[in-house]
Protein backbone atom coordinates (compact mmCIF):
# COMPACT_ATOMS: atom_id res chain seq x y z
CA UNK A 1 0.00 0.00 0.00
CA UNK A 2 1.41 3.37 -1.01
CA UNK A 3 1.56 6.32 1.39
CA UNK A 4 -0.63 9.39 1.26
CA UNK A 5 0.16 12.40 -0.87
CA UNK A 6 -1.60 15.77 -1.10
CA UNK A 7 -2.61 17.02 -4.54
CA UNK A 8 -4.12 20.26 -5.77
CA UNK A 9 -7.00 19.95 -8.25
CA UNK A 10 -10.39 21.60 -8.87
CA UNK A 11 -9.63 24.24 -6.23
CA UNK A 12 -9.24 21.55 -3.56
CA UNK A 13 -6.41 19.97 -1.63
CA UNK A 14 -6.92 16.23 -1.96
CA UNK A 15 -5.08 13.82 0.31
CA UNK A 16 -5.02 10.46 -1.43
CA UNK A 17 -3.90 6.95 -0.65
CA UNK A 18 -4.00 6.30 -4.38
CA UNK A 19 -1.16 7.80 -6.33
CA UNK A 20 -2.39 10.46 -8.80
CA UNK A 21 0.62 11.01 -11.07
CA UNK A 22 -1.25 13.29 -13.48
CA UNK A 23 -2.30 15.80 -10.77
CA UNK A 24 -0.30 18.69 -9.31
CA UNK A 25 1.33 18.03 -5.92
CA UNK A 26 0.09 20.43 -3.23
CA UNK A 27 2.56 22.62 -1.36
CA UNK A 28 3.69 21.09 1.94
CA UNK A 29 1.77 21.91 5.12
CA UNK A 30 -1.57 22.79 3.50
CA UNK A 31 -4.64 21.27 5.18
CA UNK A 32 -6.61 18.83 3.02
CA UNK A 33 -10.27 19.43 2.08
CA UNK A 34 -10.83 15.96 0.67
CA UNK A 35 -9.61 12.48 1.56
CA UNK A 36 -9.34 9.56 -0.85
CA UNK A 37 -9.06 6.24 0.95
CA UNK A 38 -8.95 2.59 0.01
CA UNK A 39 -11.46 0.56 1.96
CA UNK A 40 -14.27 -1.90 1.50
CA UNK A 41 -17.42 -0.52 -0.09
CA UNK A 42 -20.54 -2.63 0.49
CA UNK A 43 -21.41 -4.42 -2.78
CA UNK A 44 -25.12 -4.17 -1.86
CA UNK A 45 -25.31 -0.38 -2.02
CA UNK A 46 -26.34 1.81 0.90
CA UNK A 47 -29.00 0.84 3.44
CA UNK A 48 -31.69 3.48 3.79
CA UNK A 49 -30.75 5.02 0.45
CA UNK A 50 -32.54 5.02 -2.87
CA UNK A 51 -31.40 2.96 -5.80
CA UNK A 52 -31.04 5.40 -8.69
CA UNK A 53 -29.89 3.00 -11.39
CA UNK A 54 -28.35 -0.44 -11.81
CA UNK A 55 -25.02 0.83 -10.46
CA UNK A 56 -25.97 3.92 -8.44
CA UNK A 57 -27.37 4.43 -4.93
CA UNK A 58 -27.85 7.81 -3.32
CA UNK A 59 -28.99 9.47 -0.12
CA UNK A 60 -28.52 13.01 1.17
CA UNK A 61 -24.79 13.67 0.99
CA UNK A 62 -23.84 10.13 -0.05
CA UNK A 63 -23.40 8.59 -3.47
CA UNK A 64 -22.47 4.98 -4.11
CA UNK A 65 -21.57 3.78 -7.58
CA UNK A 66 -20.07 0.71 -9.06
CA UNK A 67 -18.04 0.21 -12.23
CA UNK A 68 -18.29 -3.54 -12.80
CA UNK A 69 -14.90 -5.31 -12.84
CA UNK A 70 -13.12 -2.06 -11.90
CA UNK A 71 -14.14 -0.61 -8.55
CA UNK A 72 -16.92 0.50 -6.22
CA UNK A 73 -16.88 4.08 -5.00
CA UNK A 74 -18.52 5.78 -2.02
CA UNK A 75 -18.52 9.59 -2.15
CA UNK A 76 -19.52 11.27 1.11
CA UNK A 77 -20.34 14.83 2.22
CA UNK A 78 -18.07 16.46 -0.33
CA UNK A 79 -15.14 15.39 1.83
CA UNK A 80 -14.36 11.76 1.28
CA UNK A 81 -14.05 9.23 -1.52
CA UNK A 82 -13.67 5.57 -0.61
CA UNK A 83 -12.32 3.36 -3.37
CA UNK A 84 -12.79 -0.41 -3.37
CA UNK A 85 -10.87 -1.59 -6.43
CA UNK A 86 -11.38 -5.14 -7.74
CA UNK A 87 -8.33 -7.33 -7.13
CA UNK A 88 -5.76 -7.13 -9.90
CA UNK A 89 -7.45 -4.32 -11.81
CA UNK A 90 -5.22 -1.80 -13.54
CA UNK A 91 -4.66 1.37 -11.45
CA UNK A 92 -5.06 3.55 -14.55
CA UNK A 93 -8.62 2.30 -14.98
CA UNK A 94 -9.52 2.93 -11.34
CA UNK A 95 -8.02 6.41 -11.50
CA UNK A 96 -9.96 7.32 -14.66
CA UNK A 97 -13.21 6.86 -12.70
CA UNK A 98 -11.83 8.39 -9.51
CA UNK A 99 -10.77 11.61 -11.27
CA UNK A 100 -13.93 11.61 -13.41
CA UNK A 101 -17.21 10.32 -11.97
CA UNK A 102 -16.18 10.23 -8.30
CA UNK A 103 -14.68 13.74 -8.32
CA UNK A 104 -17.73 14.94 -10.27
CA UNK A 105 -20.03 13.61 -7.52
CA UNK A 106 -17.84 15.10 -4.79
CA UNK A 107 -17.81 18.54 -6.44
CA UNK A 108 -21.61 18.37 -6.81
CA UNK A 109 -21.87 17.61 -3.08
CA UNK A 110 -19.76 20.70 -2.39
CA UNK A 111 -22.20 22.82 -4.43
CA UNK A 112 -19.74 23.29 -7.27
CA UNK A 113 -21.26 23.33 -10.73
CA UNK A 114 -19.24 21.22 -13.18
CA UNK A 115 -19.56 21.48 -16.94
CA UNK A 116 -18.42 18.68 -19.26
CA UNK A 117 -15.85 20.05 -21.67
CA UNK A 118 -12.75 22.17 -21.36
CA UNK A 119 -11.76 25.71 -20.51
CA UNK A 120 -9.23 27.80 -22.43
CA UNK A 121 -7.64 31.04 -21.30
CA UNK A 122 -8.34 34.01 -23.57
CA UNK A 123 -7.97 37.78 -23.09
CA UNK A 124 -9.42 38.82 -19.71
CA UNK A 125 -11.23 35.56 -19.02
CA UNK A 126 -11.67 32.05 -20.23
CA UNK A 127 -13.84 30.26 -22.77
CA UNK A 128 -15.46 26.89 -22.16
CA UNK A 129 -16.16 24.43 -24.98
CA UNK A 130 -18.87 21.92 -24.12
CA UNK A 131 -20.79 19.37 -26.14
CA UNK A 132 -21.52 15.66 -26.41
CA UNK A 133 -18.76 13.09 -26.28
CA UNK A 134 -17.11 12.82 -29.68
CA UNK A 135 -17.82 16.47 -30.58
CA UNK A 136 -14.07 17.07 -30.68
CA UNK A 137 -13.72 19.13 -27.51
CA UNK A 138 -10.27 17.91 -26.52
CA UNK A 139 -9.04 18.19 -30.10
CA UNK A 140 -10.06 21.85 -30.03
CA UNK A 141 -8.26 22.32 -26.72
CA UNK A 142 -5.11 20.94 -28.35
CA UNK A 143 -5.48 23.41 -31.23
CA UNK A 144 -5.92 26.33 -28.78
CA UNK A 145 -2.82 25.15 -26.97
CA UNK A 146 -0.83 24.90 -30.21
CA UNK A 147 -1.60 28.60 -30.70
CA UNK A 148 -0.26 29.53 -27.30
CA UNK A 149 -3.45 29.55 -25.20
CA UNK A 150 -3.29 28.06 -21.74
CA UNK A 151 -5.72 25.30 -20.76
CA UNK A 152 -7.47 25.42 -17.36
CA UNK A 153 -9.26 22.13 -17.38
CA UNK A 154 -10.20 19.26 -19.66
CA UNK A 155 -13.18 16.94 -19.18
CA UNK A 156 -14.43 18.42 -15.87
CA UNK A 157 -14.87 22.21 -15.82
CA UNK A 158 -15.73 23.21 -12.23
CA UNK A 159 -17.03 26.71 -11.51
CA UNK A 160 -16.70 28.49 -8.18
CA UNK A 161 -19.39 30.76 -6.71
CA UNK A 162 -18.21 33.70 -8.81
CA UNK A 163 -18.34 31.64 -12.02
CA UNK A 164 -14.58 31.32 -12.25
CA UNK A 165 -13.21 28.09 -13.70
CA UNK A 166 -11.03 26.21 -11.24
CA UNK A 167 -7.86 24.61 -12.61
CA UNK A 168 -8.20 20.86 -13.06
CA UNK A 169 -5.56 18.32 -13.98
CA UNK A 170 -2.68 19.42 -16.22
CA UNK A 171 -3.38 17.06 -19.08
CA UNK A 172 -5.49 16.70 -22.21
CA UNK A 173 -7.20 13.46 -23.11
CA UNK A 174 -6.47 13.20 -26.81
CA UNK A 175 -7.30 10.94 -29.70
CA UNK A 176 -4.39 9.81 -31.90
CA UNK A 177 -5.22 12.29 -34.72
CA UNK A 178 -4.99 15.22 -32.32
CA UNK A 179 -1.72 13.81 -30.99
CA UNK A 180 -0.41 13.74 -34.57
CA UNK A 181 -1.35 17.40 -35.02
CA UNK A 182 0.70 18.29 -31.96
CA UNK A 183 3.62 16.38 -33.49
CA UNK A 184 4.37 14.15 -30.56
CA UNK A 185 4.76 10.43 -30.93
CA UNK A 186 1.83 8.62 -29.36
CA UNK A 187 4.24 6.09 -27.85
CA UNK A 188 5.62 8.80 -25.57
CA UNK A 189 2.22 9.40 -24.03
CA UNK A 190 0.41 7.44 -21.42
CA UNK A 191 -2.77 5.65 -22.50
CA UNK A 192 -5.65 6.72 -20.25
CA UNK A 193 -7.17 3.30 -19.94
CA UNK A 194 -6.06 0.04 -21.50
CA UNK A 195 -8.15 -0.61 -24.59
CA UNK A 196 -9.17 3.04 -24.95
CA UNK A 197 -7.15 4.76 -27.65
CA UNK A 198 -6.98 8.11 -25.94
CA UNK A 199 -3.72 9.47 -24.60
CA UNK A 200 -2.82 11.70 -21.71
CA UNK A 201 -0.95 14.71 -23.02
CA UNK A 202 0.76 16.56 -20.15
CA UNK A 203 0.15 20.30 -20.42
CA UNK A 204 3.24 21.54 -18.59
CA UNK A 205 3.53 25.33 -18.92
CA UNK A 206 0.34 25.40 -21.01
CA UNK A 207 -1.65 24.65 -17.83
CA UNK A 208 -3.20 27.67 -16.08
CA UNK A 209 -3.01 27.32 -12.30
CA UNK A 210 -5.27 30.20 -11.20
CA UNK A 211 -9.08 30.40 -11.21
CA UNK A 212 -10.22 32.53 -14.16
CA UNK A 213 -13.67 34.11 -14.81
CA UNK A 214 -15.71 32.34 -17.46
CA UNK A 215 -16.75 34.70 -20.26
CA UNK A 216 -18.39 32.47 -22.86
CA UNK A 217 -19.71 28.91 -22.92
CA UNK A 218 -19.55 27.55 -26.47
CA UNK A 219 -21.94 24.64 -26.95
CA UNK A 220 -20.70 22.54 -29.87
CA UNK A 221 -23.44 21.06 -32.04
CA UNK A 222 -22.84 18.89 -35.08
CA UNK A 223 -24.99 18.52 -38.16
CA UNK A 224 -25.73 22.20 -38.87
CA UNK A 225 -27.49 22.91 -42.18
CA UNK A 226 -25.43 25.95 -43.07
CA UNK A 227 -22.30 25.25 -45.09
CA UNK A 228 -20.21 27.28 -42.64
CA UNK A 229 -19.81 27.54 -38.87
CA UNK A 230 -22.57 29.65 -37.30
CA UNK A 231 -22.53 30.96 -33.75
CA UNK A 232 -25.80 31.95 -32.05
CA UNK A 233 -26.10 33.70 -28.69
CA UNK A 234 -28.77 32.20 -26.42
CA UNK A 235 -30.97 34.52 -24.41
CA UNK A 236 -32.73 34.12 -21.09
CA UNK A 237 -34.23 30.73 -20.37
CA UNK A 238 -32.85 29.27 -23.62
CA UNK A 239 -29.57 28.87 -21.72
CA UNK A 240 -30.95 26.31 -19.28
CA UNK A 241 -31.31 23.27 -21.53
CA UNK A 242 -27.75 23.31 -22.93
CA UNK A 243 -26.25 24.12 -19.52
CA UNK A 244 -28.12 21.22 -17.97
CA UNK A 245 -27.33 18.87 -20.86
CA UNK A 246 -23.62 19.71 -20.56
CA UNK A 247 -23.44 19.44 -16.79
CA UNK A 248 -21.01 16.72 -15.82
CA UNK A 249 -22.92 13.62 -14.57
CA UNK A 250 -26.19 15.53 -14.12
CA UNK A 251 -27.74 12.18 -13.11
CA UNK A 252 -25.58 12.23 -9.98
CA UNK A 253 -26.65 15.82 -9.25
CA UNK A 254 -30.28 14.69 -9.53
CA UNK A 255 -29.68 11.54 -7.43
CA UNK A 256 -28.11 13.67 -4.69
CA UNK A 257 -31.22 15.91 -4.62
CA UNK A 258 -29.14 18.90 -5.72
CA UNK A 259 -31.10 20.04 -8.79
CA UNK A 260 -32.44 23.18 -7.02
CA UNK A 261 -28.88 24.22 -6.22
CA UNK A 262 -27.85 23.37 -9.78
CA UNK A 263 -30.63 25.56 -11.22
CA UNK A 264 -29.40 28.45 -9.10
CA UNK A 265 -25.88 27.92 -10.46
CA UNK A 266 -27.18 27.79 -14.04
CA UNK A 267 -28.94 31.11 -13.47
CA UNK A 268 -25.82 32.68 -12.05
CA UNK A 269 -23.78 31.41 -14.96
CA UNK A 270 -26.31 32.66 -17.54
CA UNK A 271 -26.22 36.10 -15.91
CA UNK A 272 -22.43 36.35 -15.78
CA UNK A 273 -21.33 34.61 -18.97
CA UNK A 274 -22.71 34.28 -22.47
CA UNK A 275 -23.99 30.94 -23.71
CA UNK A 276 -23.61 30.39 -27.45
CA UNK A 277 -24.39 27.50 -29.77
CA UNK A 278 -21.68 26.70 -32.31
CA UNK A 279 -23.32 24.91 -35.21
CA UNK A 280 -20.77 22.86 -37.13
CA UNK A 281 -21.65 21.80 -40.69
CA UNK A 282 -21.92 18.10 -41.50
CA UNK A 283 -18.83 18.44 -43.70
CA UNK A 284 -16.80 18.75 -40.53
CA UNK A 285 -14.51 21.77 -40.39
CA UNK A 286 -10.93 21.30 -39.23
CA UNK A 287 -10.03 22.12 -35.60
CA UNK A 288 -8.11 25.16 -36.93
CA UNK A 289 -11.25 26.48 -38.68
CA UNK A 290 -13.37 26.03 -35.53
CA UNK A 291 -10.78 27.74 -33.34
CA UNK A 292 -10.54 30.62 -35.84
CA UNK A 293 -14.33 31.08 -35.63
CA UNK A 294 -14.41 30.89 -31.81
CA UNK A 295 -11.55 33.36 -31.34
CA UNK A 296 -13.06 35.80 -33.84
CA UNK A 297 -16.38 35.59 -32.00
CA UNK A 298 -14.77 35.95 -28.56
CA UNK A 299 -12.75 38.97 -29.75
CA UNK A 300 -15.97 40.58 -31.03
CA UNK A 301 -17.47 40.39 -27.55
CA UNK A 302 -14.64 42.20 -25.83
Amino acid sequence: MSGETCYRLFGLIVKSELSLPEALIAPAGVAAHVFVRRDEVDPGGITGARRRGPFVWAAAGVLWFSVPDVARFLVRDGREIIVDARPGVDEDRVRAFLLGSAMGALLAQRGTMVLHGNAIVDDDGCLACVGPSGAGKSTLAAEFMRRGHQVLSDDLVPLDEECRVLPGIPRLKLLPDAVARLQVAAEELRPIRPGLTKFDYPLGAAFATQAIPLRVVYVLARGGRDPGITITTLRGMECLVPLRANTYRVGFVDALGLLPDHLDRCGRLARQAQVKVVSLPSSLPTPAEVVDALLADAAGDN
Binding site: R235, G236, M237, C239, L240, L263, D264, C266, G267, R268, A270, R271
Partner: peptide, 8 residues
Protein backbone atom coordinates in the same frame (compact mmCIF):
# COMPACT_ATOMS: atom_id res chain seq x y z
CA UNK B 1 -33.75 31.33 -11.14
CA UNK B 2 -33.75 34.45 -13.25
CA UNK B 3 -31.99 34.51 -16.60
CA UNK B 4 -31.86 37.83 -18.42
CA UNK B 5 -35.36 38.96 -17.40
CA UNK B 6 -36.86 35.49 -17.82
CA UNK B 7 -37.44 32.89 -15.14
CA UNK B 8 -36.96 29.13 -15.02
Amino acid sequence: TEMDGETV
